[in-house]
Every structure is written in C-alpha cells, then in structure tokens.
Design a protein around this nucleic acid. Structure first.
Lengths: 328, 328
DNA sequence: CGGCACGGTGTAACCGGTTTCAGTAACCGG
DNA sequence: CCGGTTACTGAAACCGGTTACACCGTGCCG
C-alpha cells in the first residue's frame, strides 16, 4: 500500500497541512521544515494521490475527446494535435470512440463526469445531447460539425474550397459532375456538397448527386458499378472523401475506365494513399484543428472566455493528375 | 453547483448510506425507499461524483495507453482496438503520446497515478522505467516491444514472417537483398532484420543492410538517392515499414528505376497506401494487438493472473506486384 | 514598553462518495 | 408468548488530499 500524507506528516513530525504546503508551495514553509518533509517523503517514497487532490480541488485536470473512430487517417491526426497541446498544458486526455453506437450519449455523459471539459468531433452524438451537457455547465468545444448554439466550434473550411473545386473541374474541361457521398453521415459532407453545387451553378457545370451507403472504399466500388450501368459516365466525379474516391478509381480501372481520360475524379482529406493514387483532393489542417480545440477548451475551463467562438481553418485544393485537363 | 448525495438524502428524508445503496444496488432497499430516493435524485438531477466514488473505492476505473505517436496508420489502429475492449469493460481510456520526448518517463509516471494500469506501446520509454512502475505494483502490459522481465507482453510475429519474406524474394528471382531500416528505432525492426538475415542465409540470398535516419517517406527518398549512387542496385530492397518503401519507390521512379523490373521492393505493415502502390508487405493484426492487451490488462487489474504472459500474434505476407517474379 | 505585522504552523472542516457496524421492527417457529 | 431470524436503515468512520482560521513567537515601530 502506498504511503499517504498522514504517514509523511507523522514521520516528519509535522501536521498534514504542513506536508501539503511543502509539496505544493515550498516557499511558504521554513527551510528546516521543508528539509524534514522532503526527507520523510523520499524515505516513504510518497506520491500525492491524484484522486485525493482532485476531490479536494474539485477539478479533474483531464480533458475528454470524443470521435467516431480512429481507423482512417483523419481523426488520428486531430487527436494527436489535441493531445499535444493538452499535455503541454498539463492535462490528461481521455478518449472515447463512439463507432456510431447508439449508446454514445450515455458514454459521453459518463465521460463528462470524469473530466473538466470535452471536445466532440464530427458525427458522434446529437446536438441535443451536447446542449444538455452545455446546460449542465460542461465546457464544450466541437470540431468538424456545424456550430451548436453557444458552444465553441472549430472546423475546416468546406464550402469555399468545394466551390473552387467546381471551378477547377470546369477549367479542366468537365461539363458535368456527380457529387458522391452521404450527407447524412457528416455535416462536413453536407457543406462540401453545397459548395460544389454552388460552384457548379456559377460556372455552368451540370451537377447531380449520387448517395452511397458507406463512405469508404467499399462505397466507392458500389458507386462505380452503379455509374457504369448508366448510358454514359459524367465528366467528373467529386467524392466526399478520399476513401470513396480511391475505391471508386480502383473499381473503375477494373472496368476499363481510365482516369482522368474517361472521367475526372477528386477526393477530400489528402490521406497518404491519395498521393500514391495521384488523386486530386483537399488538404485540411488536421493537427491544427485538434490543437485549436485544445486551446479553446483550456480557455473555457479557466473561465477566460465568455462569448462563444467559432473558428474556421482554411483548406487547400491539391491538384494531381486524377483531374488534369482532358483533351477535347 | 451539482447536487450531492447529501442533498438527495435530505430531500428524500433518508441517510446518505441509503442513497448510496439505492444507487448501486437497488435490490437491497425497500421499494418505497427506492421510489423516494429515485424521485429525489431525478428532481435534483443528481449524478454521483466519479471522484468521490473513485476515492472511496480506491480505484480509478481507467486504463492508460502510451504510444510514440498517432500520425502513421499503425498506432491508431492499435489504440482503437484497445479502446474498444476497454470501454466494453466499462473503463475509461487515458492516452499519452510521447513523441520521443525525453520527459516521457515523468509523463508516464504521472499517468500511472491516474489509472489502474497501463499499456505501453513500442519505443516510448526505457525498460528501467517500466520495471520501476511494475515494482510499484502498477499493472502493466507492453505491446510491440521485447518482453520485460515479469511484465505481460503482446506482440506481432516478426522473425518467422521476415524469414518467409526472404524465401519469397529468392523465389522471385532475387540473388541479393538490402534491408532498409533503423534497428535502434524499434525492437520490431531488429527482429524483422534478424528474420530476414536468417532467411536469406538459409536460401543463399546475399544480404546486407542500409540504415536510415528516419523511418518515413523522407528516409526512403534518402535511401533511394544513396542506392542510385552505387555501381549497381541490389535485386531486392526489404524495407522495415511501408512508409519507407513508399518513399523509396517514389524516389526510384523519379530516377527512372522501374519496380519490379529493375528492383523488387517490399514493406511492412500493409497500410492503406500500400494497396494503391501495389506494394508487397506484411499485414499485422493491429486491432487484435490492442484488444488482446486490453484483456490482459483487465485480468491483471482484477488479479485474475499471477504468471506473466507473452502472446505473439501471427502476421501475414501479402504479395503484390512490387515483388512479382523478375524475368531473366 | 505596548501594540502590531508577519512568518510559520496546527486544528479541523471540508470535498463526495462507500462501507462497517449496530439498531429496530416485522415475522417466524416452537 | 418468547427467542431468533430477516429485512432495512442510520450513524459514523473512512478514502487522501486542500485550506480557512486560529494561534504563537519574533522583530519592529512609535
């Protein structure tokens, strides 16, 4: 059994208050007392119990972060950016992956009981659940989901870059484009879709939509099959994320469709595989998203902020050969 | 301010002991009392403080996991496999990324004070530090690092599959192979190297080694430059991980070297990009590593195990065109 | 020389739960 | 009608820290 503050106090011949003071603010005890307490603490190799401390201070010294998954390359980067800043600020980081489970709400509530505040990423839990937490006074920051009233939010730019993407496709010779994705799966997707549609309309690009069940490589393959059964392919396919685009391109190739000759393809996220597949895509400042969220949360916890903040970080169109200009 | 057990007790006209019992074991209080306590708890919307509970029960109900980073595709998967099982078991998960920081040791010690046990991945902290924790009675499981005396360990098979990889390369017509990696960076790499060397010797493959500073795409590019300056390329290059191999292949291509015609290349990990680059590699059961570690740790914490266990999960050679047989 | 400020310390009341132990009332069999 | 279970409940001790407050001695000032 580890030794407690009372053991140290007894052994040093002082009161527990003095031990506590010696541990947390050495300058306010006399040098002689400090020496004795230090010696006793070393002797018993005493480490203050985090639990005792947390209870007395009424704070956990920990932040939570909630995300749907960690499989893709996406959330891992955000989490690492977050962890980096949080641990810099001396706080522990609790994680929770919801995996689209319906029990997510209770899991998050439980998590909230273990930390001083939390960051919620993407498609994990309802706005309603977040509002309830906010109402209970839990400091909250959302990342990559549309702002919830009164809650701090950090996101990557979607609309404008999707708009630019439409322009780029038109410049590359496309006359028609299909947006591939599932807007129900994530609010980001909804924004990308809206941006693309707006841009397409602006430059006179014919635009339509194809919904997929899953936003992974499998979904891309299914879409490829569907598109190949149509009388004609569109000029371009703008996918809601890279995994879709990669699965789509692989399946198209197997059917003899050559990208970009027969159809232009774009993704979103700039995952590592996109470089190797020469996929045009959009890069997001993933670590920055996490880091910014961590700083926002810290401000909230410390009570340094009243007005809710909304931050949108810029994204960047990365043009590769999957969308290079078509010959007429 | 949230309400406490005493508020509920007062409002329900019972003692705090009864409230506690009603919350955790409803069957042992009378139906009438239960009803009153429930009503009061609802009314005040009372949630038992995790901190109070933890202090009284002398357990955190949380596990820690320590890893070097989360950037690559590697650790993210392990962490997610771990989180999945741990949260299934009703425990919270604390993460800590060391990023090769020298302060890692203190960070881990602090982390250990906030949880009931921890899992340590790969190249994060010295064996000595782990032994000290183990001695202090912290339940410990290591993943992907060589077993430390008395500590549970889970790892993926390296030696045998690396041996098989050497055989495969010889079968594909290679007469010489270079192992590319940095054995100091990770114990896994050391084992892969040893397995490859053993296999190469067995099948009469000439084998040598090229060390790189960093085990990422950049490192692969540097290696490509170095190799191209030699009088002749080896027949095959076995890289310690996929990122190295991918960087290497890209840089080789830029120099007009064609894979697999001019040289065979293999990686290790089977990251997503490896599929798109048609890279021969070795797949590891990443989620299983995490999940197994979580179960081991749970057994340790529950005191169900005395003898330290060492588990080695099988890996699988994935042959793609980057190592397909050369024509003579 | 009296009073005051101040550095240093101890006592005890918290923080919010769990759990032991003892006590009471209802119920049972003899 | 009595002794012994049985079912429930409450008082109080505990988990391991922090901190408000009181206290004491010393040095300084008027």
């Amino acid at each position: 059994m580890a030794s407690t503050i009372r053991d140290v106090a007894r052994s040093a011949g002082v009161s527990i208050a003095t031990v506590s003071r010696a541990m947390r603010e050495p300058s306010i005890v006399s040098v002689e007392t400090l020496r004795r307490v230090r010696a006793a603490a070393d002797e018993l190799d005493y480490t203050p119990s985090q639990l005792g401390r947390q209870l007395a201070e009424r704070r956990h010294g920990a932040n939570g972060i909630v995300f749907p998954d960690l499989s893709g390359p996406y959330y891992g980067e955000v989490v690492v950016g977050y962890e980096d800043v949080a641990s810099e600020l001396g706080r522990a980081v609790l994680i929770l992956a919801t995996h689209g489970r319906p029990a997510a709400r209770e899991m998050i509530t439980r998590l909230a009981g273990r930390c001083d505040g939390l960051v919620v990423l993407g498609h994990t839990v309802s706005d309603e659940a977040l509002l309830e937490l906010a109402e209970r006074g839990v400091p909250l920051v959302t990342v990559a989901r549309p702002p919830v009233a009164g809650v701090d939010s950090v996101a990557a730019e979607n609309h404008r870059t999707a708009f630019a993407l439409a322009t780029h496709l038109a410049d590359s010779g496309a006359r028609s484009v299909v947006f591939l994705g599932n807007p129900d799966r994530s609010p980001d997707v909804t924004e990308r879709r809206a941006g693309l549609f707006a841009g397409a309309r602006e430059v006179g690009l014919e635009v339509s939509e194809l919904r997929v069940e899953t936003m992974d490589e499998q979904g891309g393959a299914v879409a490829a099959e569907h598109l190949c059964q149509q009388p004609a392919l569109p000029d371009a396919i703008a996918c809601a994320n890279d995994e879709l685009a990669l699965g789509l391109m692989t399946a198209l190739r197997e059917r003899g469709v050559v990208v970009p000759r027969d159809v232009l393809v774009t993704g979103w996220d700039d995952v590592m595989a996109a470089r190797y597949a020469e996929l045009t895509t959009v890069r997001q400042p993933l670590r920055d998203l996490g880091a910014t969220a961590a700083r926002f949360l810290d401000d909230l916890i410390a009570g340094r902020r009243a007005e809710p903040r909304i931050e949108v970080l810029p994204t960047e169109l990365i043009v590769r050969s999957s969308s290079s200009p078509r010959e007429r």
